[in-house]
Every structure is written in structure tokens, then in C-alpha cells.
């Protein structure tokens, strides 16, 4: 499945290189949600993440000619998204603030009133919990569990060391569980 996906992406990116905008739209539609999730892990704000993603896709379009098929298109795209997001975050000088975000926002009263949580609300609370994690942890968790990348692939995309990725995965899981428990209490089991 992954190999077929890579072949499809390779054909699409080759068409983009030849000036086929339709192929670029196909690639954008295929990867925009996962890419936005990664940008959101870093920016912690949906609108800012969408701005970052727009910039990242413009870069992808303009640099399509330099893509040499040495890695999967998705890895190349995610690398551009992650770099663009970190650069945007540095510009905003909010890195320090988001590092303390975890501790500062754990007591916000967002617990649902009903006994069971609807599907839409589940997603909302999960995203809220993700927003409480450090950018690196949220990014590594989403790359591993949402995008299905291995630790080696995450290293290639983020440039983080393998030990850091393992630590972020471990700590991120712990922080995520804490955030979900804080947001939902006993209703965490409804998510499963």
C-alpha cells in the first residue's frame, strides 16, 4: 500500500515538475490535513498553522524541480512543513511561552457535562489535549501515531536525534494521558 502510494506521489510530483497544476492540487488535497496536524503540533493555533501550511505548499510548488525521489514525497513535504513551522514559531518568539504552556493551562475548566462524549467532541478534546503538549512532543507523537512514520523516518523529517525522539515519544504519551485525564476525568475511557 505504501509503495503504491509512493509511486502515485512520484508520478504526481513529476507532473507538477512539468507544470501540471492539477497534479499539485491532487497532492495538496491528499496531504493537507495531515500536514496541518503537524503544523498545528508546533504552532498550537489552527489559523496560524494554516498560514504556515500555505507557505510550506508554496515552497513545495516552487522547489518541486529539486525533488530527486531520494526519499518519499510525504517525508520531503513534512520536512518542509516542520521547518516552516519552526521558523514561524521562532519569528513569533513564542517558543518559551509554549514550553510553559503545559503547566500553565492544565487547570482550565473544559470538562464535558454529559456522561458520554460525542464523536465530534472527542476529536475536539483530543486536539485540545495535544495543544497542551510541548511542540516537539506533539510533533513526534503525531508523526508516529497519526502519520505512521518509524523513528528513523521521524529523524529524517525533524532532524532530531533518535534518543530525543524516543524520549519525546515516551514523555509525550505521559503528558497526553495527563492532559486527557485533566480534560475529561473518568470519561477518558469513552475515547477508547
Amino acid at each position: 500500500m505504501a509503495i503504491r502510494d509512493n509511486n502515485t506521489d512520484a508520478k504526481l510530483i513529476d507532473r507538477v515538475k512539468q507544470g501540471d497544476d492539477g497534479a499539485f492540487v491532487d497532492l495538496v488535497n491528499k496531504y493537507k490535513d495531515l500536514s496541518l496536524s503537524l503544523a498545528h503540533s508546533i504552532m498550537k493555533d489552527r489559523d496560524k498553522a494554516e498560514d504556515v501550511l500555505q507557505d510550506a505548499f508554496v515552497k513545495v510548488y516552487e522547489k518541486a524541480g529539486s525533488f530527486k525521489h531520494q526519499s518519499a514525497f510525504s517525508s520531503w513535504l513534512y520536512r518542509i512543513v516542520v521547518n516552516t513551522a519552526y521558523n514561524a514559531l521562532k519569528k513569533e518568539k513564542k517558543y518559551c511561552e509554549t514550553e510553559h504552556f503545559n503547566q500553565e493551562t492544565t487547570n482550565i475548566e473544559e470538562r464535558p457535562e454529559t456522561d458520554t462524549i460525542r464523536e465530534d467532541d472527542q476529536k475536539k478534546y483530543i486536539v485540545m489535549a495535544m495543544e497542551r503538549l510541548r511542540p516537539d512532543e506533539a510533533l513526534v507523537l503525531r508523526l508516529h501515531y497519526l502519520c505512521g512514520h518509524t523513528i528513523t523516518e521521524i529523524q529524517e523529517i525533524t532532524g532530531f536525534g533518535i534518543s530525543k525522539i524516543k524520549v519525546d515519544l515516551h514523555r509525550g504519551r505521559g503528558h497526553m494521558e495527563e492532559a486527557l485525564e485533566d480534560l475529561l476525568g473518568d470519561q477518558v475511557k469513552d475515547l477508547l
Binding site: L53, Q54, Q122, V127, L141, L191
Partner: peptide, 21 residues
């Protein structure tokens, strides 16, 4: 945990692709 994380996907706005193009 994986089941929960799969629900953490954030969706783009409807006009995202049009704006980009």
C-alpha cells in the same frame, strides 16, 4: 493510545486549496 491519536487530525478550511492556488 494510537486509536486516540488517530482522532487528533486537524482539518483545513474548505477554501484552503483555492486560496493556495
Amino acid at each position: 493510545f494510537k486509536k486516540i491519536l488517530l482522532k487528533s487530525k486537524v482539518r483545513t478550511s474548505e477554501e484552503f486549496t483555492d486560496d493556495l492556488m
